[in-house]
């Protein structure tokens, strides 16, 4: 990959990524009724230099270490945050392109911006320069791996020179966030390989459906990740790991018909809240681990010793 190409990819990313894709959702806030003394403790314990001020769920101000220092020197530590905060807050909207955020950091010289949801004005996250850099690096790494995978693929058709049997194979590929164009391509290869190896068609069908559902979820909801399929004596194991943002409520996500898919995904006929339940249905056992802000890890196991299933 040349230097020029990297720059282009970064530029492309800051326009295609939205603020909500990279912001932190683990936010420390204070209420206007907190005292400056309490604020001091919160900042000290959480090791931060400022927080948004929230009343109900509405963002009403922002207060930082400079306000605190002013109160300290004036002996006003019993004053409330509501009296001392800045009421004029510069915010970012969750759906703004990252490029706008980068400009705003430059324009105002602030270290952080509260992120609000455009429709109801509620605070849903916070964006620091660190979040931007971290978000970009994650995407660039994924993009790099994808390119590497495609490059390797184009010279060496997958696994042509590797001995494979039912207990010894490993298939892995990267999945890019929002990249619908190549969705299912790798699974088509996987399907062929599984069938060459000689697994029963019913098993192959269940594995490919589960992999496809996992890939779709990753494309729609995640920052990207990878899917791997391997086998041992009695099982095929499908694993799907993504780089976040994670599922806040797993029980809800596992319920059929529950979906947070955006309209453009639904227009393609997906996002009906069937994905996770369908993976569960296809697999003999399924484990789902997810942590908001971290990522999601799905492990689906298919018994290969009895060929029945869906």
């Amino acid at each position: 990959m040349t230097q020029d190409k990297k720059i282009t990819k970064t530029q492309e990313l800051i326009y295609s990524l939205r603020v909500k894709d990279v912001m932190s959702t683990d936010i420390v806030t204070v209420s206007p009724s907190n005292t400056m003394n309490e604020l001091k403790e919160i900042l000290r314990i959480r090791r931060i230099s400022g927080t948004p001020v929230v009343e109900g769920k509405q963002l009403v101000g922002i207060v930082g270490i400079d306000d605190l220092i002013r109160c300290l020197s004036n002996g006003e530590m019993d004053a409330t945050v509501g009296e001392k905060m800045s009421k004029k807050v510069e915010t970012l909207c969750a759906d703004e392109p990252l490029a706008n955020a980068v400009n705003k950091f430059e324009q105002y010289g602030f270290g952080r911006f509260p992120v609000i949801e455009r429709n109801h004005g509620r605070l849903i996250g916070i964006l620091t320069k660190g979040d931007v850099v971290k978000g970009l690096l994650t995407r660039l790494e994924i993009a790099y791996h994808t390119e590497e995978f495609r490059y390797n693929n184009s010279i060496n058709p997958v696994f042509d020179n590797i001995a494979m049997d039912k207990t010894n194979f490993h298939f892995q590929y990267r999945v890019d966030s929002r990249d619908f164009n190549v969705a299912g391509e790798s699974i088509n290869k996987l399907k062929k390989i599984l069938s060459q190896i000689g697994f029963p068609p019913q098993i192959i069908r269940r594995v490919t459906i589960a992999a496809y559902e996992a890939e779709m979820n990753m494309i729609i909801y995640s920052y990207g990740g990878h899917i791997s399929v391997s086998a041992d004596q009695q099982h095929i194991i499908l694993e799907a790991c993504d780089a976040g943002p994670g599922i806040p409520d797993i029980e809800q996500a596992m319920r059929q018909g529950f979906s947070t898919a955006p309209v453009w995904v639904q227009e393609l006929g997906f996002g009906a809240g069937m994905g996770l339940p369908n993976i569960n249905k296809c697999a003999d056992t399924m484990e789902l681990k997810s942590e908001a802000g971290k990522g999601t890890h799905i492990k689906a196991v298919f018994n290969t010793t009895n060929g029945d299933g869906v």
Partner: peptide, 14 residues
């Protein structure tokens, strides 16, 4: 539906 994913999905399901 007429998008390419209809064909992909059909391929998965034979």
């Amino acid at each position: 539906l007429t998008n390419p994913q209809v064909v992909r999905t059909s391929d998965m399901l034979d």
